[in-house]
């Protein structure tokens, strides 16, 4: 599929789906169940607002969502208390599929949500969005409801307040532009059409989600895109412009950790797909530096990108979702 035609047919703006009555009607006609998963780690400041808005707008006013669940990584603040006070189902990640142990990372929560939640479609929304709005959910879910051939819808954010030129650069964050896009350009050129491949908001059909592995750390989004693209093709992926997303900014040092984790995942995927072979054993230590009293000091940081297998391989899952 050519990038140009994909951009025309599979790139949406949330405003195209403003008619929530029509969307809910179509969802009910297809007898679909939709679950919202919010993975959390110390998000007490923003979680209450997210739940109230989604519950009010997309459960009570327009019944688009069937369940809202917070999957928490043992937050030390009041995240779980706040979420539950506003009526969300709250789960501790480590309590789900206990037999398989506990791993630290957002990908772990996303993976366990596949088992815990009931929906035919799962929507993942990060908990740190300051300007939360119902469009973050309906903009991602709508292409799956209206277009059966689409399986995976990714968010992007591209609506500057003002632009003086007809054309302007459109892109993702720093890690996307200096790591992911160059890597995709080298190995998966069609995936470069995704404006923000690392965005943490996406909606996926269960039958796709349970068949792909889940890196538990920084690499989960990159890995998803490569796997969905490899198995179902670019036509199964879509992206929706959700205008603006206001969130915390990360320090460059943190972005370095992120890039390191993503790079590990990326190399594992290309090796697994046979695109690269005979890779040496890679170090899992990121080495960053700081200056202390004019002396340079190394700060080594262990970042191991572990991976969970496709959920369909877990017997408990197959039993719970017998149809799967």
């Amino acid at each position: 599929m050519k990038i140009e035609s994909w951009l025309k047919s599979n790139t949406f703006h949330h405003s195209a789906f403003w008619d929530l009555n029509a969307l809910v009607e179509e969802k009910q006609k297809q007898d679909l169940k939709i679950s919202l998963c919010i993975p959390t780690l110390n998000e007490e400041k923003t979680i209450g607002k997210e739940i109230v808005i989604f519950k009010s707008e997309l459960m009570q006013r327009y019944p688009l969502l069937d369940e809202i669940a917070v999957i928490d990584s043992d937050s030390s603040d009041q995240t779980r208390e706040v979420a539950s006070a506003f009526g969300a189902q709250v789960f501790l990640s480590k309590d789900i599929l206990k037999k398989y142990g506990e791993k630290r990372g957002k990908g772990e929560n996303l993976w366990k949500a596949i088992y815990q939640l009931e929906g035919d479609i799962l929507v993942y929304i990060d908990a740190d969005i300051k300007n939360i709005h119902p469009r973050f959910v309906y903009g991602l879910v709508a292409p799956l409801i209206y277009r059966p051939e689409i399986h995976y819808v990714k968010a992007f954010y591209d609506r500057p307040l003002a632009s003086s030129q007809g054309s302007r650069p459109s892109g993702g964050g720093r890690v996307t532009e200096i790591l992911i896009r160059p890597l995709f350009s080298l190995f998966f050129p069609e995936l470069t059409a995704l404006i923000q491949p690392l965005s943490g908001e996406y909606a996926v059909r269960r039958q796709v989600l349970d068949k792909i592995p889940f890196p538990i750390g920084y690499g989960v989004e990159t890995s998803h895109l490569i796997d969905v693209y490899h198995r179902w093709g670019l036509q199964a992926i879509a992206q929706t412009d959700l205008d603006r997303r206001v969130h915390r900014n990360q320090h460059t040092r943190d972005l370095g950790k992120m890039a390191f984790g993503i790079l590990q995942t990326f190399l594992k995927r290309v090796e697994a797909l046979g695109i690269l072979s005979n890779l040496p054993e890679l170090s899992t230590t990121l080495r960053q530096f700081q200056v202390n009293n004019n002396l340079f000091e190394e700060i080594p940081l262990k970042i191991i990108e572990e991976e969970r297998p496709p959920m369909i391989e877990i017997p408990e899952y197959r039993k719970k979702f017998a149809h799967a």
């Binding site: 607002k49 109230v52 808005i53 519950k55 009010s56 009570q60 006013r61 300007n131 709005h133």
Partner: peptide, 13 residues
């Protein structure tokens, strides 16, 4: 509760 608070947040923001 939710409807009122959602209105409050969306209006206030």
């Amino acid at each position: 509760r939710e409807i009122l608070l959602a209105n409050l947040v969306m209006i206030g923001e």
